[in-house]
Amino acid sequence: MDIDSLRWFQQIADGVTMTEVSEIEFITQSGVSRALQRLEREVGTELLRKSGRNLRMTLAGAAFKRHVDALLHQLDDGLAAVDQLIDPETGTVALASQLSLGTWLVPNLIGSFRQTHPDVRFELQQVRDELTTSVLQDSRLDLEITTVRPTERTVHWHTLLTEPLWLAVPEDDPLAGSNEVSLSQVADAPFVMLRTPSLLRRQTEELCQQAGFVPMVGFEGEDIPTLRGFVNAGLGVAVVPALNQVSPEAIGGAVHHLRITDVGASREIGLGWSTERKTLPSAELFRQHIVDRSMAGDLPGVAQPG
């Protein structure tokens, strides 16, 4: 059914005259009349009947109007929701990020963005640290901040920064007094690692092999804070991302961190978005905000190891 016909039927049923409808909608009275006749044919019965100079609802018209009111109310709510979504200042950004980036980088980026765009909402989806596949195939997501460089041609990648990898050791470890370490120095130590599949685990194993040994896995965890917890308990050492200056974890703790001197002891953090879907205005504003900050070298820096 034609939406205009339903709206004109609703207006006339509410007491607006045919003349007023034609003036409001900038259409001839005959055009309104023909639209209402088509509507009645589609419904299968008379909806309006002439009473003097005005039109009044029939019994069928009154029954039909209750549903028309509900339908048009829901339609208007839906249109308003879409208007809000596509308004760059009141829209919603659907953002995915890895857990290890959720304590410092993501809050920092959203916080700086909201200073100039306070009414933009965010729908956040956190994925398990080091998930080895992009989640941007989910059409509900606009952007992804990740350490996994996507291989799909449908995903564009912009490198934000390079994050060093450190070695976390217990406070009473003989190496705790140092600021840097070569992995060959901990060849005999048990390692605490993320479970497979994991990009960080694979990178740790490759760095150890490059140093001439196969790491002995003492314990496995689901996320990086868990790895640091096991290290704190004296259960092994772990290769972890460097602490960041704005991360709550950098405030203090019993775990000591050492800079790894081995070549390749770092990981890239980047921003991904689909090249097959048009980015909504609010998400495009946030994407550009992130890119601008990275190009200006205005992203949070790494804390000192220790």
Rank of each mutant, 00 (worst) to 15 (best):
F64Y: 15
V239Q: 08
S33W: 06
A250Q: 06
V181F: 04
L124D: 06
E268Y: 05
T226I: 03
G270A: 01
S51G: 09
A250Y: 02
G270N: 02
V246L: 14
A35R: 15
L258G: 02
R153M: 05
V120R: 03
S178F: 11
A242G: 05
E171Y: 06
E163D: 03
N54Q: 13
E89V: 03
L85W: 14
G229W: 03
S184K: 10
D298I: 02
P190Q: 05
H257Y: 15
N179K: 13
H257L: 15
H156L: 12
A211N: 03
C208S: 01
G252Y: 09
L71S: 14
M1W: 03
L167V: 00
A94Q: 13
T103L: 12
V93T: 04
P190I: 01
A13H: 01
V43I: 14
L143N: 06
L161V: 08
D2L: 07
V192I: 11
G102M: 15
S178K: 14
I260E: 02
S5D: 13
A94N: 15
L47Q: 01
D119M: 07
D2P: 00
R293A: 07
A187N: 02
C208D: 01
L165K: 05
P225W: 01
V127P: 04
V82I: 14
S22R: 01
Q288M: 09
E206C: 03
Q10I: 00
E284L: 15
V186I: 08
Q288Y: 05
V68W: 00
R114Q: 13
L175A: 12
A35G: 06
V237D: 05
A81I: 04
G297K: 09
L175Y: 03
V16S: 03
Q209Y: 10
V217M: 12
V240G: 00
P248E: 02
Q245W: 01
L175W: 06
L36T: 00
W157N: 08
L258P: 04
V302A: 04
M18P: 01
L243C: 02
F213M: 06
A13Y: 01
N244I: 06
